[in-house]
Computed example of a mutant assay.
Amino acid sequence: MEALVAIGIAALTAGGVFLLLRGRTFPVLLGLTLLSYAVNFFIFAMGRLTLAAPPRIVEGVFEYADPLPQALVLTAIVISFGMTAFLAALAVWSRLASGTDHVDGAPTDEDSG
Rank of each mutant, 00 (worst) to 15 (best):
T25P: 09
A52F: 12
T84N: 07
V103H: 01
P27S: 06
M83N: 03
L72C: 09
L51V: 12
A38K: 03
A106W: 08
L30P: 01
A3R: 07
R48H: 14
R48Q: 13
R22T: 14
V28L: 05
V73H: 11
V17R: 10
S80L: 04
F81R: 02
R95L: 02
V73P: 03
A71T: 10
A6H: 07
F18V: 08
T84Q: 01
P54W: 10
M1W: 02
I77F: 10
L68K: 11
A11P: 03
I43T: 02
T13V: 15
L30W: 02
D111E: 14
L96Y: 07
L12R: 08
F44D: 14
L49H: 08
A53G: 08
M83P: 01
T84M: 04
L12D: 01
T25F: 11
L68C: 08
Y64N: 14
A52R: 15
T25H: 13
L49M: 11
L49A: 12
A88I: 02
V5L: 05
L87F: 09
A6M: 06
A106C: 12
A91C: 03
F62L: 15
R48D: 10
P107C: 07
L87P: 00
G8W: 00
A10P: 02
I57K: 13
A65G: 07
F62H: 11
S94R: 15
I77D: 08
L32D: 01
D104L: 04
A106H: 10
P69N: 07
L4D: 02
S112V: 14
A38C: 00
P54V: 08
E59A: 13
H102Y: 04
I79H: 03
T50C: 12
I7Y: 10
V73E: 06
A53Q: 10
L72H: 06
A106S: 15
R95P: 04
V58S: 15
A10F: 06
I43K: 03
G31H: 04
A45N: 12
G113Q: 15
A91P: 05
M46K: 13
V58D: 08
D104N: 07
Y64M: 13
G99R: 00
S112K: 15
A65D: 00
T100Q: 05
F26D: 10
P27V: 06
P55N: 07
F81T: 07
A52S: 15
T84V: 05
F42T: 10
L19E: 14
A85W: 05
G99L: 03
Q70F: 12
S98N: 00
M83F: 05
L72T: 05
Y64A: 11
H102Q: 06
